[in-house]
């Protein structure tokens, strides 16, 4: 069954492209990313104690979550959310694993606390004082599409806007040989069941079984910069949103389940495209 949602807010952060404006311009060939890069964003919405304990995964997730809500002109405390990460925080996981292997009695309570997959969602809800439900999703190489499907479904079923945040960081240590990822990448969308004055795109979507599924490939100048990050599955949709033109996309939710998207640009008026 075909469903319709609207993209009311969008945000992006990577060390070379520290905003959606940078990413959009780079996608369209209007901006050449610098070779120097920021280390990580500062999660200013956290209290000082939480801020100094927040690992990179949390810093990047909170940055894009806050910017997407700002763009959608919505109070973050009112939004349900979906947080997606392929691997969680691999730097923290590596550190905890190393400690457990060598000196298990010296496990850091902060690192243990940060090692859970839903750490970013927890920091977010504390930081913005949000009591609404959140969902944390991991689905290996299918994480971006699977969590997008979850967020889109919630927007349609609950008939209210939802915040969708997707991020991954660089792999470290022995786990990096199996769970590969390079660099820092975060993106966030606010998805709504109806259009608003901040809507930038209309997204019609449905799922179907597809034994010969070929997902849409990333083909913009972002590809060589970000393809090594485990969340690179977000790139085809971001490229389509950056282009601002009518496009059909195919994302893989599993080896044989397709999330088909038809994207149309929207001018932010409260009128639906027929």
């Amino acid at each position: 069954m075909r469903q319709r949602i609207f993209v009311d807010g969008i945000a992006f952060w990577s060390p070379q492209l520290p905003s959606w404006e940078h990413a959009r311009a780079a996608c369209n060939g209007d901006y050449r990313p610098p070779t120097t890069a920021a280390a990580r964003p500062t999660p200013t919405l956290l209290a000082p104690t939480e801020r100094r304990r927040a690992p990179d995964s949390v810093a990047v997730a909170l940055e894009v979550a806050a910017r997407a809500c700002e763009q959608a002109e919505l109070d973050p405390a009112t939004l349900c959310s979906v947080f997606a990460s392929t691997h969680g925080d691999l730097a923290v996981t590596d550190s905890v694993c190393e400690t457990l292997a060598k000196t298990p009695l010296l496990t850091s309570p902060t690192k243990f606390h940060n090692s859970v997959h839903n750490a970013a969602a927890g920091y977010w809800t504390i930081g913005v004082q949000c009591l609404r439900p959140y969902t944390a999703v991991s689905a290996w190489h299918y994480t971006f599409a699977a969590a997008l499907l979850e967020a889109a479904t919630q927007a349609v079923v609950q008939q209210e806007p939802i915040l969708y945040v997707a991020y991954d960081i660089a792999a470290r240590g022995p786990l990096g040989t199996m769970a590969q990822s390079a660099g820092l990448l975060g993106t966030a969308l606010v998805l709504a069941p109806g259009p608003s004055n901040t809507t930038i795109a209309q997204l019609d979507w449905f799922t179907r079984h597809n034994a010969a599924l070929t997902a849409t490939a990333s083909d913009s100048p972002l590809t060589p910069i970000l393809a090594g990050n485990a969340m690179h599955g977000c790139l085809p949709l971001l490229e389509a949103l950056a282009a601002g033109s009518h496009r059909n996309l195919s994302l893989a939710v599993s080896a044989q389940l397709e999330l088909a998207l038809e994207l149309r640009p929207h001018n932010g008026e409260n009128t639906q495209t027929p």
């Binding site: 000082p48 104690t49 000196t103 010296l106 309570p109 902060t110």
Partner: peptide
């Protein structure tokens, strides 16, 4: 410094190491 009980645990670990 605004330290709390978690900081005390972290500090104890670092001192032990």
């Amino acid at each position: 410094l605004g330290l709390d009980s978690i900081d005390a645990l972290e500090l104890a670990l670092e001192i032990s190491k």
